[in-house]
């Protein structure tokens, strides 16, 4: 069985109450097309904050 992030949760351990991403969310993190779009979006958001701070 493929190991999923939620398999790392230990019942009543440190990480029992956290959320973990599903396979789709994990895949999208390195999906080049989606990430290219996020690259544009993040750059715009960062430029706004940088301009606001200068």
């Amino acid at each position: 069985m493929e190991k999923k992030p939620e398999h790392n949760i230990k019942a009543y351990g440190n990480n029992f109450t956290t959320m973990t991403p599903g396979p789709f969310a994990v895949k999208m993190r390195t999906c080049v097309i989606w990430q290219f779009l996020r690259f544009l979006a993040i750059n715009i958001k960062m430029i706004v904050v940088v301009r606001k701070s200068h």
Partner: peptide
Amino acid sequence: DYTFGEIGLAGHWI
């Protein structure tokens, strides 16, 4: 409106 975060390949490229 100006506080955000996300993890991914795009962040690495940046």
